[in-house]
């Protein structure tokens, strides 16, 4: 049993991190947030193409169909990186549309999909996968996350591809890992009472719980990527949602007053984590599913 990442998987992971460090670093993230003031809901089409060129969308398409021919574990690693960097756009819908909607695979087309009562990036997208949205059926919502424009649907969609859950969980995992790092870094630097606040146990224990939450979610998400099993994905989504939201909250707390400002990035992680938590199926449905499975096994 070799649960660890292979050398190829590590290379893929660091390649994606480098690509995002070059093309969507913190300055680019903040510029994108600032741009939403004048032009809400605009997507960087050039970056989308570059992601397409890098194989982000065609990752799991067979090579003879012009894809990269890799599997779910590799996809999970890429979406984890996207989550770390708070990369905006309907990434999962376009990834899942590769090979189905023309132009999705190479990033020349932006595809979104309806998900429950909400639809992300509706106006910026070229196509909607799954159930068609009738003219005027999608009403704009003033989205809590500046980088995820939302529309509300009158008729909630019923499509619920588990892969939306898995890849969302991967993004949540990346975000949880990032906010843990941000909290630890701040706790090392910020001085109060003549010492770094990270030397105080009250702060230390917040950080330790963040790491524990993140690493447990990581084990669940990676395992679900390997098995592709519905129960594994459901459990991974629950744990990753919890990790992303709670770690962002704790990160905010460690940052003190700074954490409450627009200028700090913490709120962007928290808000995106809230948006992702609503994706796929509700927490109530997931817990009912896992509860039912306990009965079936017994």
């Amino acid at each position: 049993m070799h649960f660890q990442l292979t050398d190829d998987q590590r290379a893929l992971q660091s390649g994606m991190r480098e690509l995002l460090a070059g093309r969507f670093d913190r300055d680019a993230l903040r510029a994108a947030v600032d741009a939403t003031v004048d032009a809400p809901g605009t997507l960087d089409r050039r970056l989308w193409r570059e992601l397409g060129d890098a194989g982000f969308f065609a990752l799991r398409l067979p090579e003879d169909e012009g894809g990269v021919g890799l599997g779910l574990p590799e996809a999970v690693l890429l979406f984890e990186e996207a989550g770390r960097a708070l990369l905006p756009g309907p990434l999962i819908a376009t990834h899942l549309a590769a090979g189905v909607v023309k132009g999705a695979a190479d990033g020349s087309v932006v595809v979104t999909q309806s998900d429950g009562a909400l639809i992300e990036w509706y106006e910026a997208s070229d196509a909607v996968a799954g159930e068609a949205v009738a003219e005027g059926a999608a009403v704009p919502v003033r989205s809590v996350d500046p980088l995820t424009p939302l529309h509300r649907l009158h008729e909630p969609a019923t499509t619920s591809d588990p892969l939306v859950g898995l890849l969302t969980a991967a993004e949540q995992l990346g975000s949880a890992a990032r906010t843990t790092e941000m909290a630890v870094q701040y706790a090392r630097e910020r001085q109060q009472f003549g010492a770094p606040i990270g030397s105080f146990q009250a702060v230390k224990h917040l950080c330790a719980q963040m790491l524990a939450r993140t690493e447990l979610a990581r084990a669940a998400v990676y395992a679900a990527a390997v098995t592709g099993d519905l129960a594994d994905i459901a459990g991974a989504k629950l744990l990753a949602d919890e990790a992303a939201v709670r770690c962002a909250r704790d990160c905010l707390q460690v940052h003190g007053g700074m954490g409450f400002t627009w200028e700090a990035d913490v709120h962007l992680h928290l808000k995106r984590a809230w948006v992702r938590k609503e994706r796929w199926v509700s927490e109530a449905t997931l817990t009912e599913l896992l509860a039912e499975l306990l009965v079936e096994v017994g």
Binding site: L216, A219, A220, A236, L238, L286, L289, A291, L293
Partner: peptide, 20 residues
Amino acid sequence: RRKLALLSAEFAALWRLTQW
């Protein structure tokens, strides 16, 4: 039911963490 489901997810993940 919700508590049992969350514990089920937790113990499944603890098993995966052990394997890891």
